[in-house]
Design a protein around this nucleic acid. Sequence first.
DNA 1: ACCTGAACACCGTTCAAGT
DNA 2: ACCTGAACACCGTTCAAGT
Lengths: 212, 212
Amino acid sequence: MNRDDLIATALAIADGEGLDAVTIRRVAQQHDVTAMALYRHFPDKDGIFDAVIERLLGQVHIPDPDARPWDEQLRELLSGLVAALRPHPNAATLVFSRILASTPGRDITERTLALLCDSGMPVEQAAETAGQTLSSLVALVIAEPGRTNGPEPDEAAAQAKKELLLALPADRYPHLVAAADALSHCASQETYYRRGVDLIVTGMRGAPARTA
Amino acid sequence: MNRDDLIATALAIADGEGLDAVTIRRVAQQHDVTAMALYRHFPDKDGIFDAVIERLLGQVHIPDPDARPWDEQLRELLSGLVAALRPHPNAATLVFSRILASTPGRDITERTLALLCDSGMPVEQAAETAGQTLSSLVALVIAEPGRTNGPEPDEAAAQAKKELLLALPADRYPHLVAAADALSHCASQETYYRRGVDLIVTGMRGAPARTA
DNA sequence: ACCTGAACACCGTTCAAGT
DNA sequence: ACCTGAACACCGTTCAAGT
């Protein structure tokens, strides 16, 4: 048993059964050890979550600056973040409060800030926008249509949700009924995330108060 | 003791001490009643959270359609949602999984979908975009700089966070250091949320695949 | 150095019982 | 109809004790 394996176990439980299923006792048990043994590796339960997020963000590749326009470079960086979070939607919630608390998270934020400043934004606005941007990407992952707490896509749950929408009064909710399918499951995750990142990057391109 | 007061109590505890502090036993105790009495009003703990979100979303005013461009009308609707969530950042997390599960949430989504369709988007794309948009607004509230679990802004915590950023190596994190202030607390919440909503609305205006 | 047993103060939830 | 007591199977965390 080592720290890394414990982190992996915590993440695996979160992926498979949701964050609430991650308990110190359960992580410990999976390593044939008592709950108290984990306190040698983490200060408390939150420390486990901190480590999980640090590991997750550590997988994000941060591209070196190049000659392309800032928005292309930013799209690449943000796509990398989304790609790292996508497989772990249950853990994504933990990112909100932890981006600036981990080294990889700071690296991602620093690079995002740099690119926004390249675009001509004053650094204060860039800070605000960077926070909003990174948070919105996390939200994208959390809210992916058809997501459940389970590991593989739960077709039955998605179908149930869809039928609930289809059963709504069509005169009051014409669009919800028409969009029942798209609201209850993702036709293409690639499209969903590409458009999601585009939504944010396009928004930043149009941001006013730019000096350049 | 009635259902509405119980919901208000749960929300107040969440606002003051975070979601984890909301326990059935504690809500009950505040009404001089045992925990089991709450099961007359809610099926389980999640049912309390469902009711909290329903109440929160119920306060959102949904403007009637008018002659203005779709993006202006949408901005008004989304601003209303943000205004309702802002005072309750700790509870905002609960919205992700519950927008389509409550009547007011469905009303908000229906109207958002309608306006996006007005813009010329096919309904499937509108569904995707509406979900991303509403989720991003929730993220805005959750990630508001300087936010803590407490009710009033915790100046000490914000200051500590700021100094942590200022202590970073300036050669590796020049922008984080320069933006330490803006990253650790909100200079103007009005500006933060106006720009946040603008980011999203501008992103939607620029979305391709539009037929109109 | 690393782990454990026992204990403490909590949880959500069930169910038979009270008035 | 509405509430309770007692119980069950869990939690996170502390601390003295083991090897």
